[in-house]
């Protein structure tokens, strides 16, 4: 751990890092660990109200006391949301990146820019845009499916609302997966394709034997990011399907905010149960950790085989 010699004043160097380290420890690291502690308390969001340690009561409550149908619904939604977002987002972002990396495509920079745009516009713009698109009475999608004699309440339909939310999430975040894939594709040496061409490979073969294996590490990063991102995201659920009001679209991340900060369509029906929220956050954290480790293990093994 010996530091490299420098003629700069040592004290100035340490003084320089102090704000960042202090800020990080006080605002990020400390609170992060404190989430674990608070999950064993009945602390609320109201200042001045006394609170105490209640052991694992919050965890018990989540699994055994609250309406088991709600709990199962939340767990099910979390899994569906996470798997569908991760799978579909990557399954579409890969061909998009491959196509838009192709020099023959005219205006490819424009197409890339368009697909990435929602990432910049953010969750509020995305949500309001799709609420308008999915307006059940006279929105464009409603009229489109009306041609086929179909109708839907979209975000208010308890059977399908989650899937519309998932669609919005993918619409918003896919550009992100795409640009990561594009960065990966640009790292593949063109010599490989030239060599392939001499050997007479077809486009499909080139994809299967050159592009895909070479891009696999990038895809693995994308999968991990999408898994973590989809497990921790709740904003799109909150703004499209009013999050809390509709248990049919609640995921664990949404549940944390629902209990800890009353985040729903603006109804304050109970006090902010932050101890309980912290317990759900801890369970979500463990869940994310397991999923990340499994995904890391699986994608690495795939890398070995390739």
């Amino acid at each position: 751990m010996q530091a490299t010699k420098t003629s700069f004043n040592k004290w100035a160097l340490y003084l320089g890092i102090l704000p960042a380290v202090l800020f990080y420890v006080v605002m990020n690291l400390g609170p992060s660990i404190a989430t674990f502690v608070l999950s064993f308390t009945d602390i609320t969001g109201t200042p001045g109200v006394p609170w105490k340690f209640i052991g694992i009561a919050n965890y018990k409550e989540f699994f055994f006391i609250q309406n088991p149908r709600d709990t199962m619904m939340v767990l099910k939604n979390t899994v569906i949301f996470c798997l569908l977002v991760t799978f579909v987002q990557n399954a579409i972002a890969l061909p998009i990146a491959v196509v838009l990396n192709n020099k023959f495509i005219k205006g490819r920079n424009f197409y890339r820019a368009v697909v990435f745009l929602p990432v910049v516009l953010g969750v509020m713009v995305t949500s309001l845009t799709w609420l308008l698109m999915f307006n059940p009475t006279d929105g464009p999608v409603s009229q489109l499916i009306g041609i086929f004699g179909l109708s839907s309440n979209f975000f208010a339909d308890k059977e399908t609302a989650l899937y519309y939310v998932i669609f919005c999430q993918i619409w918003m975040a896919m550009g992100y997966s795409m640009v990561i894939n594009l960065a990966g594709l640009q790292g593949i040496p063109t010599e490989l394709y030239e060599a392939g061409e001499i050997d007479g490979t077809t486009g499909n073969q080139a994809f299967r034997y050159i592009t895909f294996p070479m891009l696999w590490p990038t895809i693995a990063v994308n999968i991990t990011l999408a898994l973590i991102g989809s497990l921790s995201s709740f904003q799109i659920i909150l703004f499209t399907a009013s999050g809390g009001l509709n248990i049919f679209t609640q995921t664990m991340a949404m549940r944390v905010m629902y209990f800890a900060f009353n985040l729903n369509a603006g109804m304050n029906t109970f006090s902010m149960r932050q101890g309980f929220g912290a317990a759900v956050a801890m369970m979500l954290f463990v869940f994310i950790l397991i999923v990340t480790l499994v995904s890391h293990y699986v994608t690495n093994r795939r890398e070995m085989e390739a």
Partner: peptide
């Protein structure tokens, strides 16, 4: 530049933050 002691350890400390539980609730408290 590794100009300070424990450069790597400090760097790892910041990376660890990416894998820790959500800090929002205690931050709010």
């Amino acid at each position: 530049r590794n100009y300070i002691k424990f450069s790597n350890a400090i760097y790892l400390l910041f990376i660890a933050g990416l894998f820790l539980p959500d800090a929002t609730i205690p931050q709010f408290q």
